[in-house]
């Protein structure tokens, strides 16, 4: 399959890229692992592609103590090998489950979140960690909270002339995190996945975050359910309550990966498992 004809521009500075994106009917090309298949299927088209792979200044992981800044062109494979295992273990666990080995060698964190696929791995991780997305244009820099960035399926808060330049993750301390992904087959998008962060102090829950992919149009943060456990000891009953509340608040889609009913059941099971209760 060939995409329809497009022009090609490979800028060597971010400014050149932003100038071009502002003026032309153009899409940025990061790793291309979602964009190229969509161009081939002719689901989308663009007059120009702006290849960001010459912008090495957008590929980095910077640990600033209380937060970690990750350049948008950082590849999944870099996150798996790099130092985020210690600083943002939840992101590390998700990164190693994105697509497959080959996809992780091309795909980038900025590209993945800019695609805003509701079944992708990073959106729920960003939402659970209250990460911030930094967008650059030639006029301004904008900072958007993860919860507002994912506006709808394949619909991120990116304006004409903007690209995602960086993702900022606050570092959690004293938390246990888990990324649980249920797939039909190895390498598939999540049927349901859960990004969880839990802080327990003196046997009682101080903070809990539950964010799911694959169950809604956007990553779903189960804020009401999270509150149920705060101040309490974890028990089989209250974990079940949390799982029930989280799963009854959404109406997941029915598609080839699973029916709405089944997705909700899976949500319950992985929530209970992640929190250490029996499924």
């Amino acid at each position: 399959m060939y995409p329809s004809e497009f022009g090609y521009f490979k800028p060597s500075t971010l400014k050149e890229a932003l100038d071009f994106l502002e003026k032309e009917d153009a899409r940025p090309l990061a790793g291309g692992q979602s964009l190229i298949p969509m161009l081939k299927l002719r689901v989308i088209s663009s007059k120009f592609l702006v290849d960001l792979n010459g912008l090495s200044s957008l590929s980095y992981v910077k640990d600033e103590g209380d937060k970690v800044r990750i350049g948008s062109m950082t590849k999944h494979a870099d996150l798996v090998k790099g130092n985020v295992k210690e600083s943002i273990p939840l992101l590390y666990d998700a990164a190693r489950q994105v697509g497959d080995f080959q996809v992780r060698n091309m795909g980038t964190i900025g590209g993945s979140i800019s695609n805003a696929d509701p079944a992708a791995d990073y959106p729920s991780v960003l939402t659970a960690l209250d990460a911030k997305v930094i967008l650059d244009s030639n006029h301004a820099k904008r900072e958007v909270d993860a919860k507002d960035f994912f506006k709808g399926p394949f619909n991120p808060d990116i304006r004409k002339g903007e690209i995602v330049s960086e993702v900022v993750f606050p570092k959690l301390s004293g938390y246990t995190t888990k990324y649980v992904k249920v797939v039909r087959r190895a390498g598939d998008y999540a049927m349901v996945s859960l990004a969880m962060a839990l802080k327990v102090k003196d046997g009682k829950v101080e903070d809990l975050r539950l964010a799911y992919s694959g169950v809604s149009d956007t990553p779903y943060r189960a804020r009401e359910a999270e509150k149920l456990l705060v101040g309490k000891e974890i028990s089989e009953e209250n974990v079940r309550e949390v799982a029930e509340m989280a799963s009854s608040a959404v109406n997941p889609p029915s598609d080839v990966r699973g029916s709405s009913w089944y997705r909700r059941e899976v949500m319950k099971v992985i929530t209970m498992k992640a929190l250490g209760g029996q499924p």
Binding site: Y8, G32, I36, D51, Q102, N105, M106
Partner: peptide, 16 residues
């Protein structure tokens, strides 16, 4: 292998 990393060449443009 592209610069030593395995990739799926149906999902990479020749120009890349």
């Amino acid at each position: 292998l592209l610069n030593g990393k395995s990739v799926k060449s149906c999902t990479v443009l020749a120009v890349q």
